[in-house]
Simulated scan of single mutants.
Amino acid sequence: MWRAVASNALTLFIVLFLLGGGVLIWGQRQYSAPGPLAEPICLRVEAGWTMGRVSRALDEEGAISSPTILRLGAQYAEKSNLLKAGSFLIPPGASMEEIVDVVTRGGRSTCGTELNFRIGVVSAELQLREVDPATGRYVEVLAFDPAGEAIPDEYSELRAAPDLRFRVTLAEGVTSWQVVEELKAADFLDGEVAELPAEGSLSPDSYEVSVGTGRTALIAEMQSRQARILDELWARRADGLPVETPEEALVLASIVEKETGVPDERRRVASVFVNRLRQGIRLQTDPTVIYGLTQGKEPLGRGIRQSELRRETPWNTYVIDGLPPTPIANPGRASIEAALNPDDTDFLFFVADGTGGHAFARTLTEHNENVARWREIEAERQDQAQ
């Protein structure tokens, strides 16, 4: 009798063991298999949520086949306690394993609403944008200049969105004075900037911030990022450049930045200035004249007068030899790289060609011919405008 009981118990144990193993294998396959989500969604995870709360939200959206399997899978992968608050884009067909990775990976949110304060060379603009889950791209909802326009009525409501993220973006070629002045209009930042940062020391880039971020702290991050870029690119500079320090390279890069309208021309424009420095020819570049007149505090808003080309300022490269004493703007990474690794050319001149780019020349005769063509283009445009 007891042998029969023992045999039956052993058989039952084996069956249960095999069933358990089968269930485990089935659960693992369910966890890693493509999910039922047909369209992308933006999943909002609030601070303090648990993986259980997330699994229920996903189940309500029809994104997963089993909240239990998601919770157990996250626990088995030791990710249950790594949940991040934010808004996350969940793509169609995402497996539970992929979803858990998205909401625990860290980093910034991948969807939702974003307020981007863009500081440009001419003006600034507050842009409220939302990610379209179907495309993963931002769609502009509202845009206005907070310093020069009336604040739209709907701004306050959009500004209070629970998943709103904040970003400050600097355009290449902005001046330090412009940055400090425009940041005063960013109502989500705090504090004053006591000292104007050195020209050229701020990295034109995009910075994610939060409500209450200090303006001084943000400026410090911009400076730190620019210093890292300069150190990295200085270590990889070409041999034989006529700049002796990283600071001189930054001055040259700022001139390249202000003279370049077409990104692909940066290295060629840089080669012109490098060739002139090597040969002891004055740089004779208009943006340096303008900086000497405005100190980077405002656009000139008109053409340069002949008297201003002859006016002596520390930055007027029609008057001084070599480089100005400071940068004339904040150059981006590409212009710094161009200044430190210019094209190998024998060009000494360039002038606008009417397309946004430049016509380059090796001799003064060639240059004068290019200038004459540019004057013709200008005259034609004036006639068409009348």
Rank of each mutant, 00 (worst) to 15 (best):
P242S: 08
E248S: 12
R276S: 04
L293R: 09
L300T: 06
G332D: 02
N341G: 06
R268I: 09
P325F: 10
R333N: 02
T313D: 02
I281T: 10
V243P: 09
R228I: 04
A253V: 13
E244W: 01
N330L: 08
T288I: 12
S271L: 03
S254Y: 11
Y291Q: 00
E265A: 08
A270P: 07
V243A: 12
E298T: 13
I229N: 13
L277Y: 00
R266E: 10
R333L: 01
L230H: 08
V274W: 00
P314T: 04
R311W: 01
E247I: 04
V319K: 07
G332C: 00
A270E: 01
D264H: 13
Y318R: 04
V272S: 06
L283E: 01
V274P: 03
V269R: 04
A329Y: 10
T285E: 06
T326N: 01
L230V: 13
Y318K: 08
W234V: 14
S254Q: 06
L283M: 09
R278P: 09
W315M: 02
Y318V: 02
N275C: 03
Q284S: 09
I328W: 07
R225I: 04
R276H: 10
G301E: 08
P325K: 07
V269I: 12
W315G: 01
P242A: 10
F273R: 06
R225Y: 14
R282Y: 12
D343Q: 03
E247C: 01
M222Q: 10
T245W: 06
S254W: 13
Q284W: 00
V243Y: 03
T294M: 12
Y291S: 02
W315H: 00
R267V: 07
R310C: 02
I320Y: 01
G240N: 01
L241Y: 02
Q295W: 14
P327A: 11
G261S: 13
V262P: 12
P263H: 10
N330E: 03
D286E: 07
D344Y: 06
D321I: 10
Q295H: 15
S335T: 11
V269E: 03
E257H: 01
D343E: 15
R268M: 08
P325Y: 12
E257R: 03
I255P: 08
V272E: 00
L277E: 00
Q284M: 12
D343M: 02
R276W: 11
T317K: 11
V269D: 05
L300Q: 08
G322A: 09
I328Q: 08
E259A: 04
D286A: 05
I281R: 14
P242R: 05
V251W: 05
D344A: 15
P324T: 04
P246E: 07
E312L: 05
G292M: 07
Q295V: 07
P299V: 14
N275G: 10
P263L: 10
T285N: 03
A339V: 15
K258T: 00
L300F: 10
E308M: 14
M222L: 03
T345M: 12
L309E: 10
L241K: 11
V274L: 05
R228C: 05
G303R: 13
E259S: 11
I281L: 15
P325G: 12
T313A: 00
I290K: 00
G322Q: 14
L241W: 05
V319T: 10
T326Y: 03
W315E: 06
T345P: 13
G296S: 13
E265I: 05
V272M: 02
P299T: 14
